[in-house]
């Protein structure tokens, strides 16, 4: 597999590296991620929309959502087609609470995540008892129902949505203004780093093994003492929390939301990111989100056709490379001594 050479070389280096060099590498990588908005490079710049605003939406926003959805789809093998519902719940939570309570953005975040998690439980408890393809349709319906309810409920703005949503108050001297997308990028990036940290920790421990076992063979996982319902529910809750967080940040940035922002298309786009990058591998998923977010912005003539492209991509990927560009855990240690 010549294509995997770079990845394997990096993997070999990583396995052989001392904890110190690993830490240095991690710090450098994180700093580089924070410094991206200062890049002035005509090659990566995007026409029509400033690169920095593309960097916030869709790049890092897609990445955050894809990392969240990956816990559900990639890790546990549960096909969730209604992920946008959690994003919408987060966005509406911020819009409504900021208008009706004195809470600021930072205080609302736990509520946005909490409500989305609660929605995950409400949807998951009944739905997760069902088999995969039924579950996919239930989640699909859930995503649409949340939108239809938003359209038909005048108390939360109906089809016109909500406006005058405040942005986050300033922290560490960083002001969140309408003009400058960079603080939102840093905010989302920070949120994503926390999520990655959490997901990686879980992946290498008992919950990660339980999720993978469920993905591989749910019946057998149950026979081996894994409480499949509990871990599927946790996957839903974690995915929901990340979606809610992303939604609240999104609402605080665009300042007005309408139900039409939260269509099935968005669920499918995030799913495409996960599928392209490599289901179950967090780095692959981010790569997928960056590619699928960036390419249509860079090549504007493509952007009108992006859903066509995403749909086609899902079919093609499943047929020729079902594990994505960066498949999960390709590396294994082959020892044949005995």
């Amino acid at each position: 597999m010549a294509k995997l050479n770079l990845r394997d070389k990096f993997g070999d280096w990583w396995d052989g590296a001392s904890p110190f060099s690993r830490t240095v590498f991690r710090i450098l990588a994180v700093l580089a991620a924070y410094a991206i908005p200062f890049l002035k490079n005509p090659i990566i710049d995007t026409p029509e929309t400033s690169f920095n605003s593309v960097l916030f939406y869709p790049l890092v926003m897609f990445s955050l959502m894809a990392v969240g959805l990956n816990v559900v789809v990639g890790k546990s093998g549960i096909l969730d087609l209604g992920y946008v519902a959690f994003f919408a719940i987060g966005a509406y939570t911020h819009a409504i609470l900021s208008a009706h309570t004195g809470l600021n953005f930072w205080e609302i975040i736990p509520f946005a995540m909490g409500f989305a998690m609660f929605a995950g439980v409400i949807l998951g408890l009944p739905a997760l008892r069902l088999r995969g393809d039924y579950l996919a349709i239930i989640t699909l319906g859930f995503g649409e129902i949340v939108r239809i309810i938003a359209v038909n409920t005048e108390a939360i703005g109906g089809a016109a949505g909500l406006t005058d949503i405040p942005g986050p108050s300033s922290v560490f001297g960083i002001e969140f203004t309408v003009m400058d997308p960079r603080p939102y990028y840093w905010l989302t990036l920070t949120a994503m780093l926390f999520v990655i940290w959490g997901v990686l920790r879980l992946s290498h421990r008992k919950p990660g093994r339980a999720w993978e076992a469920i993905r591989e063979d749910e019946d057998v996982a149950e026979f081996m003492g894994v409480s499949t319902l509990k871990y599927k529910l946790w996957a839903f809750i974690i995915g929901g929390a990340v979606g809610g967080l992303a939604g609240a940040i999104f609402a605080s940035n665009i300042r007005s939301i309408q139900p039409e922002l939260f269509t099935l298309n968005l669920s499918i786009m995030i799913l495409a990111c996960v599928v392209l990058g490599g289901m179950g591998n967090i780095w692959g998923v981010i790569l997928g989100a960056v590619l699928l977010g960036y390419i249509p912005e860079k090549l504007r003539f493509l952007s009108d056709y992006r859903i066509i492209f995403f749909g086609l991509l899902m079919v093609v990927m499943m047929n020729i490379r079902p594990n994505g560009l960066l498949p999960r855990k390709k590396r294994e240690v082959v020892g044949d001594k005995s």
């Binding site: 096909l79 393809d133 995403f310 749909g311 499943m318």
Partner: peptide
């Protein structure tokens, strides 16, 4: 899961 994703992709396409 692969078949489902493929089908959904086709549908959206």
């Amino acid at each position: 899961l692969s078949s489902l994703i493929s089908a959904i992709g086709a549908s959206f396409f």
